[in-house]
Design a binder for these strands. Structure first.
Lengths: 231, 231
DNA sequence: AGTTTTTTACTTGTCAGACTACCGGACAAG
DNA sequence: CTTGTCCGGTAGTCTGACAAGTAAAAAACT
């Protein structure tokens, strides 16, 4: 005896919309299609569509504002707001920060190796090239921005939004000492090599390799920072 | 300057309906007024009323059955249904969250095992006792608070402020569905056991043991959640 | 030209009515 | 007793319309 599962149209619509958001690359905060467009696109009435949207709103997937439109929501941004604020206002010890990154980022690299798409890979390649270019020109500020971007792209490629938001928080509010690691003699060229190793492993889909490469990258960077700080 | 609060009609209606249920003594399982009657009684259109009912349904306050009517949800049923509905719509979010916790928390446990002081251990013991007490009294809300507190205390015991604030962020604004894992039958007693194992390993200074115990705890919790999703 | 006001287009919010799908009881036929 | 049919009541969906909020273009006024 199989369970008969009754499906209401409005609930089916929620699934379709969720898939649309994912498949068509809508990011948190983006404006979504209007109700009229959606109704036409999905071939349903506005009533049913609105009920579906109501569900998505209550479950926190979209926010709806009269006169403005439908927007893709992001629970994660809210969740880590306090964390980001704390990072920004507290020059926490570099050691603590390093410890956390050493826990998280190798796993991010491993996930990225498994889940990265062609878009992700291409963006990382562009980022790496920019990094090399700025390195040749000794543009430290741009270099730092590129370094952050690389780590963020990797987190994005893990296709785990929570990880992405988390790494975004950690990279935007890096402690000063950590940022200045790129000022250390030889760190830039090492970074290029180490990023390259990570990038290659991710491209090859080599999870363990990516994990190890990231582990190596962070450890080496940490060693250089320590030498710089404590002699 | 008073804050302007915009209220959508459908949301006002939910409040009125909730009050009606309480004031007029409707018990769980009772049949409520029909949509037509409600619309007339409240002086609103059926569309707005249906959106209000949709909210109440998703949040697990009423159950709606085509051809039969609107029913006040029974409390036993209510938790399961709203939980299941929420899970259905936030599956990816919860999975992401779990993935991150599975990466971070075992390492936190390992660090706590190495760095925890007597104060940390004592607080964790008190927390565990409270948890068992609330479990016996079936006080779910207090239970949830205790669960979060345990994980926070552990993070604090790692003596890494970044990790602590991070875990605080992750546990304070936890997705509703994840919190509700404690509503799953048998999860509470398992949680007591699993927390105990973590606590013992930390007390004994057994890093690898604590790491494994936490890994086991999260994995088991996730399995139970998944059973509710797909089982 | 620069600024303010008005208009315009587009969006979500609400309403009304009609039709469909579904449920359960009543009742007659077998 | 079982089966089939009908019927009233219910939620589910569709259509079209108008109200209300928003933002940007257009117009009017310095």
């Amino acid at each position: 005896m199989t369970e008969i599962k009754k499906i209401r149209l409005s609930e089916s619509i929620t699934d379709v919309i969720k898939e649309m958001i994912a498949r068509e690359g809508f990011k948190p905060g983006d404006k979504f299609y209007s109700e009229l467009v959606l109704a036409k696109k999905l071939g349903v009435s506005r009533s049913s569509l609105r009920e579906a949207l109501k569900i998505l709103e209550v479950t926190g997937q979209v926010t709806i504002r009269q006169g403005k439109g439908i927007f893709v929501a992001d629970l994660n941004d809210q969740r880590f707001k306090s964390f980001a604020a704390w990072l920004k206002n507290n020059e926490q010890s570099i050691k603590d920060n390093f410890e956390v990154r050493l826990i998280i980022e190798p796993k991010i690299a491993a996930l990225a190796a498994r889940h990265a798409g062609t878009d992700d890979v291409q963006k990382m390649r562009e980022c790496s090239r920019s990094f090399a270019k700025y390195a040749a020109q000794q543009e430290i500020d741009s270099l730092i921005r590129c370094d952050r971007e690389f780590h963020r792209l990797l987190a994005f490629a893990s296709h785990n939004k929570t990880l992405y938001v988390l790494m975004k928080s950690m990279t935007t509010n890096l402690p000063y000492g950590w940022i200045s690691s790129l000022h250390i003699a030889g760190r830039i060229s090492k970074t290029i090599t180490e990023h390259e190793q990570i990038y290659c492993a991710v491209t090859a889909g080599d999870g363990p390799g990516a994990e190890q490469a990231m582990n190596n990258h962070l450890t080496k960077a940490w060693e250089d920072v320590q030498i710089h700080l404590y002699g």
